[in-house]
Design a protein around this nucleic acid. Structure first.
Lengths: 120, 120
DNA sequence: CTCGACCTTGAACATTGGTTGAAGTCAAGA
DNA sequence: TCTTGACTTCAACCAATGTTCAAGGTCGAG
Protein backbone atom coordinates (compact mmCIF):
# COMPACT_ATOMS: atom_id res chain seq x y z
CA UNK A 1 0.00 0.00 0.00
CA UNK A 2 1.64 3.10 -1.25
CA UNK A 3 -0.15 5.96 0.43
CA UNK A 4 -1.10 8.61 -2.07
CA UNK A 5 1.55 11.16 -1.18
CA UNK A 6 0.03 14.46 -2.09
CA UNK A 7 2.85 16.30 -3.73
CA UNK A 8 3.03 19.97 -3.02
CA UNK A 9 3.66 22.91 -5.30
CA UNK A 10 5.90 25.81 -4.44
CA UNK A 11 2.90 27.91 -3.53
CA UNK A 12 1.47 25.29 -1.21
CA UNK A 13 4.75 24.70 0.54
CA UNK A 14 5.30 28.42 0.93
CA UNK A 15 1.87 28.96 2.38
CA UNK A 16 2.03 26.02 4.74
CA UNK A 17 5.46 26.98 5.96
CA UNK A 18 4.75 30.67 6.18
CA UNK A 19 7.53 31.79 3.89
CA UNK A 20 7.55 33.40 0.46
CA UNK A 21 7.70 31.40 -2.73
CA UNK A 22 10.98 33.03 -3.62
CA UNK A 23 12.39 31.79 -0.35
CA UNK A 24 11.22 28.26 -1.11
CA UNK A 25 12.98 28.38 -4.47
CA UNK A 26 16.03 29.87 -2.82
CA UNK A 27 16.18 27.01 -0.34
CA UNK A 28 15.74 24.44 -3.06
CA UNK A 29 18.54 26.00 -5.08
CA UNK A 30 20.72 25.72 -2.01
CA UNK A 31 19.82 22.12 -1.41
CA UNK A 32 17.97 22.69 1.82
CA UNK A 33 14.87 21.26 0.15
CA UNK A 34 14.67 18.85 -2.73
CA UNK A 35 11.86 18.64 -5.22
CA UNK A 36 10.77 16.36 -8.01
CA UNK A 37 9.77 17.95 -11.29
CA UNK A 38 6.63 17.46 -13.33
CA UNK A 39 6.91 16.80 -17.04
CA UNK A 40 6.33 20.52 -17.35
CA UNK A 41 9.30 21.32 -15.14
CA UNK A 42 7.32 22.45 -12.14
CA UNK A 43 8.55 21.58 -8.66
CA UNK A 44 6.71 19.04 -6.59
CA UNK A 45 7.71 18.78 -2.95
CA UNK A 46 7.08 15.93 -0.55
CA UNK A 47 4.75 16.22 2.38
CA UNK A 48 7.58 16.96 4.76
CA UNK A 49 8.76 20.09 2.97
CA UNK A 50 6.71 22.60 4.96
CA UNK A 51 7.86 20.94 8.13
CA UNK A 52 11.46 21.11 7.06
CA UNK A 53 11.03 24.79 6.43
CA UNK A 54 9.54 25.39 9.83
CA UNK A 55 12.36 23.55 11.48
CA UNK A 56 14.80 25.48 9.30
CA UNK A 57 13.36 28.74 10.57
CA UNK A 58 13.90 27.64 14.14
CA UNK A 59 17.40 26.60 13.22
CA UNK A 60 18.01 30.06 11.82
CA UNK A 61 16.79 31.62 15.02
CA UNK A 62 19.27 29.40 16.79
CA UNK A 63 21.93 30.86 14.57
CA UNK A 64 22.59 28.22 11.94
CA UNK A 65 23.35 29.27 8.39
CA UNK A 66 21.45 27.90 5.43
CA UNK A 67 24.50 25.80 4.61
CA UNK A 68 24.56 24.31 8.07
CA UNK A 69 20.87 23.58 8.04
CA UNK A 70 21.24 21.96 4.66
CA UNK A 71 23.96 19.72 6.04
CA UNK A 72 21.76 18.88 8.99
CA UNK A 73 18.84 17.99 6.77
CA UNK A 74 21.07 15.91 4.55
CA UNK A 75 21.04 13.33 7.32
CA UNK A 76 17.27 12.91 7.05
CA UNK A 77 15.50 10.20 5.04
CA UNK A 78 12.95 11.15 2.40
CA UNK A 79 10.02 10.81 4.75
CA UNK A 80 11.44 11.46 8.21
CA UNK A 81 9.98 9.56 11.14
CA UNK A 82 9.39 10.80 14.64
CA UNK A 83 12.81 9.62 15.66
CA UNK A 84 14.45 11.60 12.91
CA UNK A 85 12.75 14.78 13.95
CA UNK A 86 13.71 14.14 17.51
CA UNK A 87 17.34 13.78 16.55
CA UNK A 88 17.26 17.06 14.65
CA UNK A 89 15.58 18.75 17.57
CA UNK A 90 18.26 17.48 19.91
CA UNK A 91 20.99 18.74 17.64
CA UNK A 92 19.40 22.15 17.58
CA UNK A 93 18.94 22.23 21.31
CA UNK A 94 22.62 21.48 21.75
CA UNK A 95 23.52 24.22 19.29
CA UNK A 96 21.21 26.66 20.97
CA UNK A 97 22.70 25.89 24.32
CA UNK A 98 26.11 26.65 22.90
CA UNK A 99 24.89 30.00 21.65
CA UNK A 100 23.38 30.77 25.01
CA UNK A 101 26.67 29.94 26.63
CA UNK A 102 28.48 32.21 24.20
CA UNK A 103 26.10 35.00 25.04
CA UNK A 104 26.62 34.37 28.69
CA UNK A 105 30.33 34.68 28.08
CA UNK A 106 29.74 38.01 26.42
CA UNK A 107 27.71 39.00 29.43
CA UNK A 108 30.52 38.01 31.72
CA UNK A 109 32.90 40.18 29.77
CA UNK A 110 30.58 43.03 30.55
CA UNK A 111 30.05 41.78 34.05
CA UNK A 112 33.67 42.45 34.75
CA UNK A 113 32.37 45.99 34.63
CA UNK A 114 34.41 48.66 33.00
CA UNK A 115 37.34 46.36 33.48
CA UNK A 116 37.02 46.05 29.73
CA UNK A 117 38.57 49.46 29.50
CA UNK A 118 41.06 50.96 31.85
CA UNK A 119 39.67 54.37 31.27
CA UNK A 120 37.37 55.44 34.00
CA UNK B 1 44.93 71.37 33.90
CA UNK B 2 44.12 69.88 30.58
CA UNK B 3 45.65 66.45 30.59
CA UNK B 4 47.69 65.87 27.47
CA UNK B 5 45.27 63.62 25.66
CA UNK B 6 47.42 61.46 23.47
CA UNK B 7 45.51 61.32 20.25
CA UNK B 8 45.58 58.02 18.45
CA UNK B 9 46.06 57.19 14.79
CA UNK B 10 44.02 54.61 12.95
CA UNK B 11 46.79 52.10 13.27
CA UNK B 12 47.13 52.60 17.00
CA UNK B 13 43.42 52.32 17.60
CA UNK B 14 43.22 49.21 15.45
CA UNK B 15 46.07 47.57 17.24
CA UNK B 16 44.84 48.42 20.71
CA UNK B 17 41.34 47.26 19.91
CA UNK B 18 42.39 44.17 18.05
CA UNK B 19 40.61 44.98 14.81
CA UNK B 20 41.85 45.85 11.33
CA UNK B 21 42.47 49.39 10.20
CA UNK B 22 39.85 48.97 7.52
CA UNK B 23 37.35 48.08 10.20
CA UNK B 24 38.26 51.19 12.17
CA UNK B 25 37.67 53.35 9.10
CA UNK B 26 34.46 51.49 8.42
CA UNK B 27 33.19 52.21 11.90
CA UNK B 28 34.14 55.84 11.66
CA UNK B 29 32.30 56.17 8.35
CA UNK B 30 29.27 54.74 10.04
CA UNK B 31 29.49 57.08 12.97
CA UNK B 32 30.31 54.46 15.54
CA UNK B 33 33.57 56.28 16.19
CA UNK B 34 34.37 59.91 15.65
CA UNK B 35 37.76 61.31 14.87
CA UNK B 36 39.37 64.70 14.58
CA UNK B 37 41.51 65.41 11.57
CA UNK B 38 45.03 66.72 11.38
CA UNK B 39 45.82 69.56 9.00
CA UNK B 40 46.92 66.81 6.66
CA UNK B 41 43.53 65.09 6.85
CA UNK B 42 44.63 62.18 8.95
CA UNK B 43 42.30 60.81 11.62
CA UNK B 44 43.08 61.33 15.26
CA UNK B 45 41.00 59.40 17.75
CA UNK B 46 40.50 60.07 21.42
CA UNK B 47 41.81 57.80 24.11
CA UNK B 48 38.50 56.03 24.48
CA UNK B 49 38.32 54.82 20.91
CA UNK B 50 39.95 51.42 21.46
CA UNK B 51 37.65 50.89 24.41
CA UNK B 52 34.60 51.79 22.37
CA UNK B 53 35.66 49.26 19.80
CA UNK B 54 36.09 46.55 22.38
CA UNK B 55 32.66 47.25 23.79
CA UNK B 56 31.29 47.33 20.27
CA UNK B 57 32.65 43.86 19.65
CA UNK B 58 30.90 42.57 22.72
CA UNK B 59 27.74 44.31 21.56
CA UNK B 60 28.05 42.54 18.24
CA UNK B 61 28.40 39.22 19.98
CA UNK B 62 25.22 40.11 21.83
CA UNK B 63 23.60 40.62 18.45
CA UNK B 64 23.48 44.36 17.98
CA UNK B 65 24.01 45.81 14.53
CA UNK B 66 26.52 48.52 13.82
CA UNK B 67 23.66 50.96 13.55
CA UNK B 68 22.32 49.99 16.94
CA UNK B 69 25.72 50.21 18.55
CA UNK B 70 26.21 53.61 16.98
CA UNK B 71 22.95 54.76 18.49
CA UNK B 72 24.00 53.37 21.83
CA UNK B 73 27.34 55.16 21.71
CA UNK B 74 25.65 58.38 20.67
CA UNK B 75 24.53 58.69 24.26
CA UNK B 76 28.10 58.80 25.52
CA UNK B 77 30.07 61.97 26.31
CA UNK B 78 33.42 62.60 24.63
CA UNK B 79 35.40 61.13 27.46
CA UNK B 80 33.08 58.63 29.11
CA UNK B 81 33.29 58.13 32.85
CA UNK B 82 32.93 54.96 34.82
CA UNK B 83 29.24 55.59 35.21
CA UNK B 84 28.78 55.90 31.46
CA UNK B 85 30.45 52.60 30.83
CA UNK B 86 28.35 51.01 33.48
CA UNK B 87 25.18 52.25 31.84
CA UNK B 88 26.25 50.86 28.49
CA UNK B 89 27.13 47.57 30.11
CA UNK B 90 23.71 47.39 31.71
CA UNK B 91 22.01 48.09 28.42
CA UNK B 92 23.95 45.31 26.80
CA UNK B 93 23.21 42.90 29.58
CA UNK B 94 19.51 43.59 29.18
CA UNK B 95 19.76 43.10 25.44
CA UNK B 96 21.70 39.91 25.87
CA UNK B 97 19.15 38.59 28.28
CA UNK B 98 16.46 39.27 25.70
CA UNK B 99 18.42 37.33 23.09
CA UNK B 100 18.87 34.46 25.50
CA UNK B 101 15.14 34.47 26.14
CA UNK B 102 14.47 34.44 22.42
CA UNK B 103 16.77 31.49 22.01
CA UNK B 104 15.06 29.76 24.85
CA UNK B 105 11.77 30.34 23.09
CA UNK B 106 13.22 28.71 19.99
CA UNK B 107 14.30 25.84 22.16
CA UNK B 108 10.84 25.52 23.57
CA UNK B 109 9.42 25.32 20.09
CA UNK B 110 11.68 22.36 19.58
CA UNK B 111 10.98 21.12 23.04
CA UNK B 112 7.40 20.60 22.08
CA UNK B 113 9.01 17.78 20.18
CA UNK B 114 7.86 16.97 16.70
CA UNK B 115 4.73 18.87 17.54
CA UNK B 116 6.25 21.39 15.16
CA UNK B 117 5.20 19.07 12.39
CA UNK B 118 2.23 16.77 12.37
CA UNK B 119 4.09 14.27 10.30
CA UNK B 120 5.46 11.49 12.39
C1' DC C 1 65.24 67.74 2.92
C1' DT C 2 64.50 63.17 2.31
C1' DC C 3 62.95 58.55 3.14
C1' DG C 4 60.16 55.04 4.73
C1' DA C 5 56.37 54.08 7.37
C1' DC C 6 51.87 55.27 7.82
C1' DC C 7 47.91 57.65 6.29
C1' DT C 8 44.10 59.11 2.62
C1' DT C 9 40.13 58.06 -0.70
C1' DG C 10 37.30 55.50 -3.81
C1' DA C 11 35.80 51.63 -5.94
C1' DA C 12 35.42 46.94 -6.45
C1' DC C 13 34.85 42.47 -4.37
C1' DA C 14 33.01 38.92 -0.98
C1' DT C 15 29.37 36.59 1.76
C1' DT C 16 24.75 35.68 3.57
C1' DG C 17 19.99 35.54 2.74
C1' DG C 18 16.95 36.70 0.28
C1' DT C 19 13.44 39.89 -3.05
C1' DT C 20 11.89 41.66 -7.41
C1' DG C 21 10.85 41.88 -12.17
C1' DA C 22 10.52 40.45 -16.92
C1' DA C 23 9.44 37.17 -20.13
C1' DG C 24 7.76 33.01 -20.95
C1' DT C 25 5.41 28.15 -19.80
C1' DC C 26 2.06 25.06 -17.47
C1' DA C 27 -2.24 23.29 -15.44
C1' DA C 28 -6.83 22.80 -14.84
C1' DG C 29 -11.66 24.28 -14.71
C1' DA C 30 -15.56 26.10 -17.63
C1' DT D 1 -10.28 24.80 -26.29
C1' DC D 2 -9.37 28.73 -23.91
C1' DT D 3 -8.32 31.34 -20.18
C1' DT D 4 -6.31 32.53 -16.01
C1' DG D 5 -3.72 31.77 -12.17
C1' DA D 6 0.37 29.52 -10.80
C1' DC D 7 4.66 28.17 -12.23
C1' DT D 8 9.55 28.62 -14.69
C1' DT D 9 14.32 30.91 -15.19
C1' DC D 10 17.62 34.48 -15.09
C1' DA D 11 19.54 38.51 -13.73
C1' DA D 12 19.59 42.39 -11.07
C1' DC D 13 19.15 44.31 -6.80
C1' DC D 14 19.11 44.93 -1.55
C1' DA D 15 21.36 45.37 3.26
C1' DA D 16 24.93 44.31 6.48
C1' DT D 17 29.77 43.97 7.40
C1' DG D 18 33.69 44.29 6.05
C1' DT D 19 38.34 43.49 2.93
C1' DT D 20 41.37 44.64 -0.73
C1' DC D 21 43.66 47.35 -4.09
C1' DA D 22 45.57 51.31 -6.42
C1' DA D 23 47.16 55.78 -6.42
C1' DG D 24 48.64 59.17 -3.92
C1' DG D 25 49.46 62.41 0.42
C1' DT D 26 51.52 63.03 5.29
C1' DC D 27 54.62 62.59 9.26
C1' DG D 28 58.59 62.65 11.61
C1' DA D 29 63.42 61.06 12.47
C1' DG D 30 67.88 61.68 10.81
Amino acid sequence: MTTTVRELTVGEVAEQAGVTQSAVRFYERHGLLTAARTSGNQRRFGESAPCLLKVAKVAQRVGLSVKEITALFATLPEEPAHEDWRRIATTLVVEAQARVDALRAALDDLGSGSKLCELA
